[in-house]
Write a protein that binds this DNA or RNA. Structure first.
Length: 315
RNA sequence: GGUGGGGUUGCAGAGUGGCCAAAUGCAGUAGACUGUAAAUCUACCGUCCCUGACUUCAGUGGUUCGAAUCCACUCCCCACCA
């Protein structure tokens, strides 16, 4: 059966879902069966060496199926959505040129939206931004920026007054374009791309919570603590962007004797759960284009695979 | 058995006569999100017929116009002494 017009390439699947929802597993199954390659859309798995803590696909899995955008930068480097978008689009193009099926899987909402809806080009100036960060990215001076913005860009000031980073970026954009961020945002695109179909893996809260707890336990019992110790020694917690990874900070507290092992487990499970909920909110509200696949247990993966293939690439 | 300190809304923990449905933190729930996003931020968070009403601060009974706050007894917890 032919579902798609021959002039268009079949849509490739984009799998999203909260942590521990089984995205990677599903992506792997799909890639194996349909001659695909996987593109990871994960803001932390891009870092070299953060393996256990980010539940990165194993060496074996990666040997079986090519994975892209894993281990591409060092924790000392900065990364952002635009860099991701460019890298991901390039990977999609190359995989297609090889005649293979791109399968995107990941949990970083913003990155997912960048793929499905694109990003709107806004000017940026690393030098300007750097100086603005140095000046205003602290408790004491930030109020001055708020005052400036209230004067020059009241709508932005209102929208971002409690988001330091966002207000600084808004100021950067204001200086570069003379326009308010909130004004520019009105013109941003809202249509999802046509050459991909996105899916969200949806688990019932209680079940997902259990999966998360189980996985946190396993991660802590394997070599996560050692991994964290060595990365913390190498400055992970004061790195430009990688410091934001979940869990490593808590392990640092444990290593410093501030937490008992069980408390560490509790803290990490809770933080991971909170993260999963934010992800679910994102996918629910930011991705109306996505097909929601309800998951009950391990058997659901078979059904999920069927759903994905029905709506995306043809067999 | 004796002495002292306690029992507060899921947890921790303020509050010692009215401004208390009760600070604050945590957890929980909903939401926001375009160059740091596994981050950051917002709202709600006793019950209800929800711009007001009702039931709460171990229990019972008092004092008082009025109590989580004062008194008495009861039950429980902790510390120390025996």
């Amino acid at each position: 059966m032919k579902v798609f017009s021959s002039s268009l390439p079949p849509p490739f699947p984009v799998i999203m879902g909260p942590t521990a929802s089984g995205k990677s597993f599903l992506a792997l199954q799909l890639a194996e069966k349909y001659d695909g390659e996987i593109i990871s859309a994960d803001s932390m798995q891009i870092y070299k060496g953060l393996d256990v803590g980010t539940a990165k696909p194993t060496k074996e899995e990666r040997a079986k199926i090519p994975h892209h955008l894993l281990d591409i930068i060092d924790i000392t480097e900065k990364y952002d959505v635009f860099a991701f978008r460019d890298a991901a689009e390039k990977a999609v193009k190359e995989i297609r040129e090889r005649g293979k099926l791109p399968v995107i899987a990941g949990g970083t909402g913003l990155y997912m939206r960048a793929i499905m809806y694109g990003l709107d080009e806004l000017p940026s100036s690393p030098e300007l931004r750097k100086s603005l960060d140095e000046k205003y990215d602290n408790e004491e001076k930030f109020p001055e920026l708020v005052a400036i913005m209230e004067e020059k860009a009241p709508a932005d000031a209102e929208a971002f007054r409690s988001h330091r980073r966002k207000l600084i970026r808004a100021y950067e954009v204001l200086l570069l374009t003379g326009k308010e961020m909130t004004f520019l945002q009105q013109a941003w695109k809202r249509e999802p791309r046509k050459d991909a179909q996105s899916f969200v893996l949806v688990w019932e809260n209680s079940v997902l919570k259990e999966r998360i707890a189980l996985r946190c336990r396993q991660m802590l019992e394997s070599s996560w603590i050692e991994e964290a110790e060595s990365f913390i020694k190498n400055g992970l917690l004061s790195s430009p962007t990688a410091w934001q990874v979940l869990g490593y900070r808590q392990i640092g507290q444990y290593l410093a004797g501030m937490l008992k092992k069980e408390e560490l487990f509790e803290k990490i499970s809770i933080a991971t759960w909170q993260y999963a909920r934010r992800q679910n909110t994102w996918f629910r509200t930011q991705h109306p284009e996505a097909i929601r696949i309800s998951m009950q247990n391990k058997n659901s993966f078979r059904d999920a695979e069927r759903v994905v293939m029905k709506f995306s690439a043809k067999e």
